[in-house]
Simulated scan of single mutants.
Amino acid sequence: MEHTSKYITPDIKLSCYEDKLFKSDIIFDHHMLIWFISGETKIVQAEESHRFKTGDIFLIPRNQPATIINFPKDGMPHKTVVMLLSAKTLRDFYANIKITTSITPIPKICSFNSHPLLESCLSSLIPYFEMEELPEHIAALKITEAISILRAIDPGIDGILANFEEPGKVDLARFMEKNYMFNMTMEKFGYLTGRSITTFKRDFKKTYNTTPQKWLTQRRLELAHYMISEKRKKPTEVIFEVGFENLSHFSFIFKKQFGYAPTQLPERNLNKN
């Protein structure tokens, strides 16, 4: 995979993937404002999925599990400007601002559909990536400008950006049933359910009477089987969306679980009919 990144500061980068595809299961520690220059991205979350392409601008909220699949397209690399809106930056910004919007407890991805003000702000960063050194206060001003524009065009954005709460303890079974397809560490699952890793494993054993890894593998295989059998998707399309990383490993454990390879499913369905 050919991936390059250029940074103005640690919070502003130009990201470029030249390869055919890049996939990651991510939960971001900070909000991410992204402007698409070229390529395409599919983002899969627990209850919805999105596709973004050239010209699109969107905000990915922090602490929301997602599978992100990046594609080059039309002979162009997957290329984006990414701006991190960290908790420190946002706390400083909101320090003297009275918020009238209610906090959004479970925020969704926000799309701004090539908004000219945001596009102008983010595209103006491009020349800075070619400079060897940029005064730090200029980058800070650009982030402040972006936040100000977001607040001007989306009255509800304060409910996301001004929410500094950490995840609280939630119903373990409900959370796992919604998010098992994301390939996160046990520590992340624990954090998002409001538990230490020890408490997470203990509560998981009480709830499911098995280990998290065994349960996750089983649920992901069941979902993969359903998507290939009923949705008529190819194994290569499915593996990334159900929490697996490698096609050969997926095929091996799929056959071990069901007694036949995932590529044999369409033929088995035809024989049933």
Rank of each mutant, 00 (worst) to 15 (best):
K98D: 11
F189I: 05
S120A: 10
P135L: 07
K188R: 10
I12H: 05
E222F: 01
G156M: 03
D158F: 03
I157Y: 00
R202S: 13
I109C: 00
A95D: 06
H3K: 11
E241Q: 15
N179F: 11
I8K: 02
M176N: 05
V238H: 11
D74I: 04
I239Q: 02
H137F: 15
A87G: 06
Y226V: 13
D74Q: 14
T198V: 12
Q264N: 07
P155H: 08
M186I: 04
T236P: 06
T80N: 11
R232N: 09
I253D: 00
P155A: 12
L141S: 07
R174P: 13
L134H: 06
I103R: 12
Q213M: 08
I27W: 10
D56R: 13
P135R: 03
S15H: 07
G39R: 10
L122V: 01
I37P: 00
T89E: 08
H249P: 01
G168R: 08
K88Y: 11
I8F: 05
V242I: 11
Y260T: 10
A173T: 12
T100I: 04
A140N: 03
F189H: 08
P262R: 10
E40R: 13
E119C: 13
I153H: 03
I138R: 09
S120F: 05
I149P: 07
R268D: 00
E222K: 01
P135Y: 05
Q64G: 02
P167L: 09
Y7K: 10
Q257M: 13
G194I: 15
Y226K: 15
P167N: 11
F200C: 11
S111Q: 09
Q45F: 12
F254M: 00
E222S: 02
I239R: 03
T144Q: 02
I160K: 03
P10Y: 11
Y191L: 15
I253E: 00
N246V: 07
M131C: 14
N269M: 14
N183C: 09
K53M: 09
L141P: 02
Y260H: 12
